[in-house]
Amino acid sequence: MDQAERIERFLAARYPRAGIAIVAGSTARGERTPTSDIDLLLIDDDLFADVSQVSEAATHAFEDEIFEVFAYTVEGFREWADRGVAQHRPVIAHMLVEGAAIRSRTRWSAVLALGSVLSETESRIRRYVITDLLDDLQDATDPLEQRVVAGLLFERMAELMLLSSGQWIGSGKWLPRRLRAWSPERADQLSTPLLAGDFPGFAARVDEELTMAGGRVQAGFVR
């Protein structure tokens, strides 16, 4: 069944006042799997019956599909999109710019094109966290502790690699996807020893990436 027709029926049933509707994620890219949901971004000042409401994140079941809805008034969208940019993870701005059936994407296209800006203060905080995790991994002997710390270290290091290069970050599956899209080679160099369970090799690669990002931060660090 045509997904566009199903989405229109969903909107008519659940969000009839939505003036702007953007289909994002795997549905927009034509990469759906059997478990994929349908991601929708909705923007309209008359979207909610309660005039004081400015945003809503909701999950709906409709015609054997799961819809993940991110709904905003115009001001609500600006507030949450600006918050995402400040956190280097502009999820809804990406939905707006990269999604399908969009009416206006000019402002946020420009914002995303500028890339993320990592301040020296935040860089030092992130490098301090990575330094601490790296020491924990190198000291760990318990197999479970090694895996937990290594997983955290991969996330923090991947984020710093992206941010240090002006890239946006993501959470969950989007973090490795953004890392691979930015540099397949460095993503592979970081992930290969981790996937192989080679924790000394993984720690060595993290140390190399940390050096390129500005180096270890430890003694004398003040938060």
Results as ranks from 00 to 15, higher is better:
W174N: 03
D142R: 07
E5H: 07
E155A: 05
A93Q: 11
G214M: 02
L160C: 12
M157D: 07
V54R: 02
A181W: 12
D2V: 01
W108S: 12
G172H: 04
G25F: 01
I125D: 14
V149S: 00
F62V: 04
L195M: 00
T73Y: 01
G115P: 07
L42I: 04
R9I: 02
G220E: 04
L40W: 04
D64K: 06
L133Q: 13
R105P: 02
D64H: 10
W174K: 01
F10E: 07
V51Y: 03
A18P: 07
V148P: 00
Y128R: 12
R205I: 15
P16F: 03
D207N: 13
R6A: 06
L114H: 13
Q138M: 02
V69R: 02
R177K: 12
I38Y: 00
V217G: 09
V91D: 11
D142M: 04
L152S: 10
A4E: 08
G30W: 01
E120M: 01
V117L: 00
A58L: 06
D50T: 02
S171H: 13
D207Y: 01
T192I: 01
G151S: 14
G84R: 10
E209Q: 14
A113R: 01
E31T: 12
A24M: 12
A93S: 15
V23T: 11
P34M: 01
W174A: 04
D139M: 11
R105L: 04
Q146P: 10
A100Q: 15
Q3S: 05
V111S: 11
A18T: 07
A196C: 14
F154Y: 14
T192W: 08
D207S: 15
Q189S: 05
R178M: 06
R180D: 07
D136Y: 14
G84A: 13
R29G: 02
V91A: 08
I125T: 13
Q167V: 11
S55W: 04
E122V: 05
P176E: 08
A24G: 12
Q146K: 15
F70C: 03
I102V: 15
D82F: 11
E122R: 08
S123L: 09
E185S: 10
A4Y: 01
L96W: 11
S191T: 14
F77S: 03
E159A: 12
I66L: 07
A187L: 07
F70G: 00
S165D: 10
I66P: 11
S52G: 04
E145Y: 11
R9P: 00
A196N: 12
P34R: 02
M161V: 13
V148Q: 09
E209A: 14
E185G: 06
V129S: 09
D44N: 00
Q87D: 15
V85C: 05
G170S: 09
R17C: 04
A110T: 08
A213H: 12
P34A: 02
D135V: 08
T131W: 02
R14V: 04
G99D: 14
W80P: 07
M1A: 09
A204S: 14
M95E: 05
D46G: 00
M95C: 07
S171Q: 13
L133A: 10
F70L: 00
L162A: 13
L175S: 05
D44Q: 06
E63A: 11
A24P: 08
V97I: 15
E98D: 15
V148E: 10
H88N: 14
R14G: 02
A100L: 13
P193C: 12
D44E: 06
T131H: 03
T121A: 13
A21L: 10
T27Q: 03
A71R: 01
A150D: 08
I7P: 06
W80E: 08
